[in-house]
């Protein structure tokens, strides 16, 4: 399995070359084009209950699509819904990533996806909701973001502060706490940041350069209100 990001930037696609018999799973609706040798199946990852919990708890799709090169080698083109960069990670079986619910695009067959409940404070204030995806296993993992993806590398005990709605994925060796952006409550909100996450290394934190919620609020003012 080989993967390559085409047109890096705001509107990228991923091309995945599959050898005969290989398959990948992708977010439902992610397939843009593929070779005629590829079969598209829909699959409830983690069984019916797993799929159900993913659907209701994380808001992710109920079905993942499985793209299988069942009739010989071929290639698949995949793209996310929103404009923004794609990043490809290689999981080695030991690394685990927490991914916010819209961040998953595609993964190799050896990738394991579970929904995971966050603690109450993180769920309420962390900006990713109560449930996130925990992705582990071995193989290629493609994540997508809104805007550009930026990787923050944290050494052991190194700290970094991230606005809560800019998170895409973070390693499970990091830990974070939610705090007010400034020391006062009022200033916290008038500064426009509200709550922030204080991450502590070691590990990686992937953030997106745009905040989907703020973008939605910004665009709403241009939508004409019907009578």
């Amino acid at each position: 399995m080989k993967s390559e990001i085409l047109y890096p930037g705001a509107f990228p696609m991923v091309r995945v070359d599959l050898a005969a018999g290989e398959h990948i799973k992708a977010e439902s609706g992610a397939m843009v084009a593929c070779s005629p040798t590829i079969d598209i199946e829909s699959k409830m990852e983690g069984g019916f209950l797993g799929a159900l919990s993913r659907k209701f708890l994380t808001g992710e799709k109920f079905f993942f699509q499985t793209l299988r090169a069942s009739r010989g080698p071929g290639e698949v083109l995949l793209a996310p819904t929103v404009p923004g960069e794609i990043v490809i990670l290689e999981l080695d079986g030991v690394n685990e990533y927490m991914v916010q619910k819209d961040g998953f695009l595609a993964g190799a067959d050896g990738i394991l996806i579970e929904s995971k409940m966050q603690s109450l404070s993180r769920g309420l204030l962390g900006g990713e909701g109560f449930f996130i995806l925990k992705i582990s296993g071995k193989g290629m993992l493609a994540l997508n973001s809104f805007g550009a993806i930026h990787k923050i590398e944290l050494k052991p005990d190194q700290e970094y502060i991230v606005d809560n709605s800019h998170l895409v994925a973070w390693s499970s060796t990091t830990s974070y706490s939610i705090e007010k952006a400034t020391s006062g409550w009022v200033a916290s909100f008038t500064s426009g940041e509200g709550f922030v996450c204080r991450f502590r290394g070691p590990g990686l934190v992937y953030i997106q350069s745009r905040n989907p919620g703020s973008f939605g609020a910004w665009i709403r003012q241009f939508i004409p209100v019907s009578e």
């Binding site: 080695d92 079986g93 030991v94 690394n95 590398e153 944290l154 050494k155 052991p156 390693s171 060796t173 290394g201 070691p202 590990g203 990686l204």
Partner: peptide
């Protein structure tokens, strides 16, 4: 097979299996 992640100056930030 790797069963832990090792962090140090000479390793990548994601840790070395």
């Amino acid at each position: 097979t790797s069963n832990a992640l090792c962090f140090g100056d000479e390793f990548p930030a994601s840790g070395a299996p």
